[in-house]
Write a protein that binds this DNA or RNA. Structure first.
Lengths: 144, 144
DNA sequence: GGATTTATGTTGTTATAGCAACTATATACC
DNA sequence: GGTATATAGTTGCTATAACAACATAAATCC
């Protein structure tokens, strides 16, 4: 087959991901919010009181990552963690007032970021790209 | 604008990247080679004796990451690091025999991985995707 | 040719990312 | 209803990612 380094689509995706993350990291820095922490906040702004396990499934990350990010967000005062009454194993995350207010500032920045990333790319092209990404995920997931 | 979590293309790219990395990590584990370390090895298999700084530019990573991955690869016995005679600041990486031989086993696995990822995706679609990824990189790079 | 600037790497710190092993609780099984 | 199993989180470890501050060597500038 003889592929060279530049041929691998996975490497191109990886580099792009790092570039986008670096960019959004700088955008969020003034708010004392790291990129992945922001993903948790975005989900909580949509629906408060999610459990860590729900975040594990939505974000498709290891539970240890979620636990540590949640601990960090609590330390920063953006959320509070409470044990669920119905299931004592489960930990639910609730926004503090500070955390809720943060959304008013950060959500516009996230949307502006998306607009910058998608600049000059048509809706059709985006749909196409999403389809291919889905296919790639399926390709590896069925073998995991 | 009102975007929800699932609307962000950056998040989809990020998740896919993590999925692909997780997959390749498992594939490389038997060889005591981590995914990013493998990227350095792939470049050395193509051209031995690259400097850390050349890797910084090719891999588009911070020099600290490259330095630490190179240190790790040296510790594993896959490469040797020598100071360049012409430029005493520069550190060049050279494959050991072990490192060179590793390529015979790992390169086929990398190519198989690429084939798995691209399964059911046409050459046209891949080209299209690469074009969009390039555009996204440009979109953020010009603002960094 | 000596001072300033630039380039290359290293050390220290914080934030992801995932695996293994563990605790505690809940569910299933008989 | 007591045992086995499954689920939700935590702790410890390694690898990646980027930034700041630093050391050293090279290049530039006058």
């Amino acid at each position: 087959m003889k592929l060279t380094f530049q041929d691998y689509i996975s490497i191109k995706i990886h580099k792009t991901d790092l570039n986008l993350t670096r960019f959004v990291k700088a955008k969020l820095e003034p708010f004392n919010l790291a990129p992945e922490q922001n993903l948790i906040m975005m989900l909580l702004w949509e629906k408060d009181g999610l459990s860590q396990n729900q975040l594990v499934e939505t974000l498709n990350k290891d539970k240890t990552n979620i636990a540590r990010m949640a601990a960090s967000l609590e330390k920063k005062g953006f959320i509070k963690r409470y044990n669920c009454d119905k299931d004592r194993r489960s930990v639910r995350l609730y926004l503090t007032d500070t955390g809720r207010n943060l959304g008013n500032e950060v959500i516009p920045i996230a949307e502006e970021f998306d607009a910058i990333v998608c600049n000059g790319i048509s809706k059709e092209e985006l749909k196409q790209m999403e389809k291919i990404l889905r296919k790639m995920n399926q390709n590896v997931e069925k073998l995991l």
